[in-house]
Amino acid sequence: MSHDVVVGIDGSTQSAAAAGWAAREARRNGLALRMVHVAGGEVDALERELGGGSALPRPVAAIRDRIKAALPELAVSCEIVPGNPAYALAATSRRSSVLVLGSRGVGGFTGLLVGSVGLRAAARTDCPVVLVPAGAGGPAESDGPAGPDVTDEPAAAPGEVVVGVQGDRPCDAVLAFAFQHAAATGARLRVMESRDTYHGPYTTEAPVGVWEIGESLAASEQVRLQDALARWRDKFPGVRTEAEVCAWSPGRMLAEASRTASLVVLGRRAPAHPMAGPRLGAVAQSVLHHTHCPVAVVPHR
């Protein structure tokens, strides 16, 4: 089984930012980069226009060539595949370590990741999918048509990695992805859980105020979350970790945290029944629509 980093690319500025993110991810982890351009039903027209089935649209080829020139040591391949974009991109996840997509396209002939295609692909992947929103490429994103300069890295310390967890036993797959990415990038990891600790009104014979009781309950939830992370801290001792329990809704909590983050990580539960259709939950959709940074959606049981 291959463990390449796969990126969907359509020649747009958004897919160029996604390609830059994917290239840096592949370089950090010693993996190959596989660039996939989904031509859909227009593949025959593409071949006729460009004079052969092996030709790539110029904007796609420009991004590929710039990445290969900037990172000559990185194994890079680029291919055209036919089919429905969401299904074709999701199919690549069966043999990849991560799928990276631009979260918006530009429409028209090259806009193959427009609308909800990225969301539909994210709901069907077998591997983690990272959606890179417009403008979230940071120092590596370029406004030019040739795409990102993947040799550029942030001069300052990387933004924190934020991971949303739920329940007394946080999902191993989600935490593993978050800790591994934080360890690879040297970022601080912020583990966040949305939980309403106020269940008042409280009654007590002791001279304790209601807000003091609420603060005490919040502190106990914080300790519980810290305990749940203990074995992950032991496994990744070099990762600086902060645990936080927040009373905001999960979507608002993670969207706000994305303002200072380099990556937000959240989970997507696989359908309980094999006949159930794939879908992203309300929290994932809310975060993806309001995020200020790339978002990783990690499938799990």
Rank of each mutant, 00 (worst) to 15 (best):
A91Y: 13
D65R: 13
L131H: 10
E49W: 04
Q180N: 08
P85R: 05
V150C: 07
A176Y: 08
P201T: 06
G214C: 09
L217I: 14
G51Q: 02
V174A: 01
C78R: 05
R233N: 14
A45E: 09
D65G: 10
G30W: 04
R195P: 00
V6C: 06
Q222L: 14
L46I: 14
L288M: 03
V76Y: 02
A247C: 06
H181F: 11
G52R: 03
L101P: 04
P82W: 07
V36W: 01
I67Y: 08
G108E: 05
H273G: 06
V165Y: 03
Y202L: 04
G238L: 15
V43G: 03
T260A: 10
L56M: 10
L225E: 13
A61S: 12
P139Y: 08
S262A: 07
V38W: 06
Q285R: 15
A219C: 06
G53C: 03
M192T: 08
R224S: 13
S286M: 11
A26M: 08
V287L: 02
P82G: 12
V295K: 00
S54P: 05
V264G: 00
V264S: 02
G8V: 06
R252T: 12
P139E: 13
V297M: 06
H290P: 02
D227P: 05
A18N: 04
E205A: 10
P250H: 02
G30D: 02
V117L: 09
P82H: 08
R24A: 12
A122H: 11
R48F: 11
L225A: 09
R95M: 12
A156S: 14
T204Q: 02
E25D: 12
T151S: 10
M275A: 15
L112C: 14
P85G: 04
K68Y: 00
V98G: 10
L74K: 00
A45Y: 06
V132D: 06
P145G: 04
G53V: 13
G159S: 04
A173Y: 05
E193I: 01
V239Y: 09
P237C: 13
S216C: 07
S2A: 07
F179M: 13
E205Q: 14
E256A: 08
G267Q: 11
P139D: 12
G144I: 01
D143M: 03
G147P: 01
A146P: 01
R269P: 05
A70C: 03
P201D: 14
R95I: 11
G30H: 05
E141H: 12
L225H: 11
R224G: 04
A284R: 02
P278Q: 09
R124Q: 15
H289G: 05
P207G: 02
G83S: 13
C78P: 06
E25G: 00
F236W: 13
G108Y: 09
A86L: 12
A22N: 04
A173D: 15
E193Q: 14
E205Y: 13
G281N: 12
K68G: 15
R231K: 15
P72G: 09
A61T: 05
V163A: 01
D196R: 10
S103Q: 12
I63K: 08
V130F: 07
A230T: 15
R28Q: 04
V287W: 03
G135Y: 03
R190Y: 02
Q180V: 10
A255I: 00
G137T: 01
